[in-house]
C-alpha cells in the first residue's frame, strides 16, 4: 500500500491528471508510445438513443478504449469522459467497457494475460438510456468479477465527477481501487439523496459534508480504497503499475465476513461522525 505519496515540495513539478480528458488519461497510464485506440471517434459508434431525445451525441459516446502496454505487459484501458453527459453510462459506451473486459477475459483464459485498468469518472446510469444503461452496468460488473480471477482489475477514481450509481459498485468490485483527494465515491449522488429523502437527510449543497462522507480521503482512511494520491499523472501511473506488480488479495466485495464484522462495530441507530468512523474502521495492515 502506498499511503499518501508525494510531497508538497514537488508541487511545481506536478502534471494534473484531473485536468486531462479521458483520451489523455488513458495515454498517461500506458507505457509511452504504446497507446492504440479501439472504436475511436472516427468509427462512428454513437448513442442511438440520445438524438431521439434531442441530445447531441459525442462520437465516441464518452468512453475511450485503448490497448497498449503497462510495464511491458499487454494492457487495456477504459477511460470514461466525465465532461460528456456527466460520464453517464449508456448502451454504447457501457458495451465498450464490458466488451473490452470480455475480450481481456478471453485472452486470459487462452493464457495471454491482459492487464485491465478502469479510469472512472461517472454519475452512473445515463437516464436517457435507463434500462439499457443498467443492463450494461450489470454486464460490466459480471466481466470484472470473471476477469478478476485471472488478473488484478485496477480502478482509478480521480475527480471531478467522482464515481456513483452502479459504477460505484463496479469500482468496489475491482482488485485495487486508487483514489485522489478530489475524488468522491458513493452509490447515490448527493443530489439524488436530497431529492429522494429530503434536505434533512442530506444537504447536497454542503460540500464539506459531502466530502467528509464520500471523499477519497475518507474512503481511504476507512479502508474502502487502497491508495490515496495527489492529483499527479506520474503518481497515478506509478500506482497502477504497483497494483499489477504486487497482486492484491481478495477484493473487498468478496470479504463478506470481514466487512460484516466491521459493520457490527457501528451503532447504526446513532452512527458515528465520518471522522469518528475512521477510528472504528481504521485501516488494517499497510499505510
Amino acid at each position: 500500500m502506498s499511503g499518501v505519496a508525494g510531497s508538497r515540495q514537488r508541487f511545481l513539478g506536478r502534471r494534473s491528471y484531473i485536468e486531462l480528458l479521458a483520451r489523455e488519461r488513458a495515454r498517461a497510464v500506458l507505457d509511452a508510445g504504446t497507446f492504440r485506440e479501439l472504436l475511436g471517434p472516427f468509427d462512428g459508434l454513437k448513442s442511438p438513443w440520445l438524438p431521439l431525445q434531442g441530445v447531441v451525441a459525442q462520437a465516441d459516446d464518452g468512453v475511450v478504449i485503448a490497448r497498449g502496454l503497462i510495464d511491458g505487459k499487454a494492457a487495456v484501458v477504459a477511460a470514461v469522459e466525465g465532461r460528456y453527459q456527466g460520464g453517464s453510462i449508456g448502451e454504447v459506451c457501457g458495451s465498450k467497457i464490458a466488451g473490452a473486459l470480455e475480450l481481456a477475459l478471453r485472452d486470459c483464459e487462452r493464457g495471454s494475460p491482459v492487464r485491465p485498468v478502469l479510469l472512472l469518472e461517472t454519475g452512473g446510469v445515463r437516464l436517457q438510456e435507463a434500462n439499457l444503461g443498467l443492463a450494461v452496468i450489470a454486464e460490466i460488473q459480471a466481466a470484472i468479477i470473471a476477469l478478476r480471477r485471472h488478473v488484478p482489475v485496477v480502478a482509478v477514481v480521480a475527480g471531478i465527477v467522482g464515481c456513483y450509481g452502479g459504477m460505484s459498485l463496479a469500482a468496489a468490485l475491482c482488485s485495487t481501487l486508487i483514489m485522489t483527494r478530489q475524488a468522491r465515491l458513493g452509490m447515490n449522488g448527493p443530489e439524488v439523496i436530497e431529492q429522494e429523502a429530503g434536505i434533512a437527510e442530506l444537504d447536497a449543497g454542503d460540500r464539506a459534508l459531502i466530502w467528509s462522507l464520500m471523499g477519497g480521503e475518507q474512503r481511504y482512511a476507512t479502508g474502502l480504497a487502497d491508495a490515496l494520491l495527489e492529483d499527479d499523472v506520474d503518481e497515478i501511473a506509478a500506482e497502477v503499475r504497483r497494483a499489477f506488480a504486487n497482486p492484491p488479495g481478495p477484493a473487498r466485495s468478496e470479504q463478506v465476513e470481514r466487512f460484516a464484522e466491521r459493520l457490527a462495530r457501528v451503532d447504526v441507530a446513532l452512527p458515528p461522525s465520518p471522522r469518528a468512523l475512521r477510528d472504528v474502521w481504521r485501516r488494517e495492515g499497510g499505510a
Binding site: 459480471a142 468479477i145 470473471a146 468490485l173
Partner: peptide
C-alpha cells in the same frame, strides 16, 4: 437501493457490490 446519509457513510456501494459479487460468483 436505500437512499440515505448513513448508507453512504457506511459504504452501501461496497455492500451492494458484495451482493452482486456473490450472485455472479
Amino acid at each position: 437501493q436505500a437512499y440515505g446519509r448513513r448508507e453512504e457513510l457506511l459504504g452501501i456501494h461496497l455492500a451492494a457490490a458484495a451482493a452482486v459479487d456473490a450472485y455472479a460468483s
